[in-house]
Nucleic acid binder design. Structure first.
Length: 118
RNA sequence: UGAGAGGCCUGGGCGGCCGCUCCGGUUCGCCGGGGAGGAAAGUCCGGACUCCGCGGGCCAGGAUGGUUGCUAACGGCAACCGGCCGUGAGGCUAGGGAAAGUGCCACAGAGAGCAGACCGCCUCCGGGAGUUCGCUUCCGGCGGUAAGGGUGAAAGGGUGCGGUAAGAGCGCACCGCGGGCCUGGUGACAGGCCUGGCAGGGUAAACCCCAUCCGGAGAAAGACCGCAUAGGAGGGUGUUGGCGACGGCCCGCGCCGCCCUCGGGUAGGUCGUUCGAGGCCGGGCGCGAGUCCGGUCCCAGAGAAAUGGUCGCCACCCCGUUCGGGGUACAGAAUCCGGCUUACAGGGCCUCUCACGCA
RNA sequence: UACCCCGUGGUGUAAUUGGCAACACAACUGGUUUUGGUCCAGUCAUUCCAGGUUCGAGUCCUGGCGGGGUAA
């Protein structure tokens, strides 16, 4: 994801799931494929090297998890805790679990909206 | 051998699997190549580049401050000079002007800026006591004195000798200081000779004076393309006006409506964007910072922002000492260069000094 | 990316031209009180750090560190 609007749509309409390491925001994007957004602020690490490390681990976990994820979603990964030192083997299963959890909530919300409107 | 001084470099390596980005090729399957730093950092200076500004003057404001050089430029660097520190190698140094003017120097102290007499020392005068009648001592007074004590960060040259009632640049020698001349040096300055006879302390990172420099904004600069909407409505003001953004003022010049409110639009793309005051090698010149010539190389270019994840072996360090386990600095390009400053595990190299020992 | 501002006890603020770092609250100690409160007395500072100028620096200068803010 590379535009400001994509992120704002995910944050306003999407659903979240989090554990002690990362927060996942999920929202349908209307495309064939699933896209990744990363949000690692200075709140997490002041050092740019440490922030890059967190981003790269998240990015690679997303790459490895992509076959197990639903299609047509925007997935934003946010570093939950300050001073996070992530490991791919921990992040990968957590990422899959949280994405499915948030996606399930998202689908439930959509059906509720359709029932109330219809 | 020990203790130091100065400077420079490096800052993990190899491989497997899965990925990212850019360039080139492509039979569209892929293939080949490049891909973080010495500080990319802090944003403290200086430039390049881009746009804005109409020309000049005056006054502000800011910066720098030994000299000579280097440089595109600098508040940087080099060499040299002076001062202070160190046994030394070396280190530090905003280091112009205090007889252009103004301000300040608390407390202490007698006196702190047209200097000054608290204690002390000394002549003289008056009085008391002692006396071996030479004088000694005490008290008071008019004075002299900056040698000694004391205050202070600082007390109007320093040391010694002479001199004197006691003293004093009062005189002399040396040192310091001021002035003049000569020599050397591009210069800062250094050395020498003569002379004065010692005076107007400190502070300019207090105001200030002098010399030199400085137009403003910054890649979110700016250029082009595309798309969409609008090409407006209302009010106020009227040439003795307004605008020409960006410290103020003045003169000249140019333009003609200008200002306020409402309404409308804008978070797309391409370029700028990486070939440059560029790197490496060799040579010439220069003590050096550097510079010139020749050859050679192309060495990140993203844009919610790539340069990664994981595994194995080796190197180094620590725990342990049989197996094994853990760790490997500071730190991540964003228009680009030249510096400065700050951070940095470990490793390597060169030159020099002092002390001790041996030959 | 460019630029601006601020750092003083635990907290919030003062400090004249450079001359003994002050005040309030909090905390602690002691006293008063049967106890607590009130009140009284006392304690609590590397002025963010390192250099420099000066006789003397919270104040002036230089460099750093930390915090906050502004600009599409």
């Amino acid at each position: 994801m590379r535009s400001r609007g994509d992120f704002q749509r995910a944050y306003s309409r999407g659903n979240r799931a989090k554990d002690e390491r990362l927060t996942v925001v999920v929202c349908a994007n209307g495309l064939e494929h699933t896209r990744l957004g990363l949000s690692v602020g200075k709140r997490c690490w002041k050092s740019a090297v440490r922030r890059n490390r967190v981003r790269r681990v998240f990015r690679d976990a997303f790459r490895l998890a992509l076959p197990e994820l639903p299609h047509g979603l925007d997935v934003v990964l946010v570093a939950s805790t300050p001073k996070l030192e992530p490991d791919t083997r921990d992040v990968l299963p957590a990422l899959v679990r949280l994405v499915h959890k948030a996606h399930r909530r998202y689908l439930e919300k959509l059906t509720r909206v359709q029932e109330s409107s219809g």
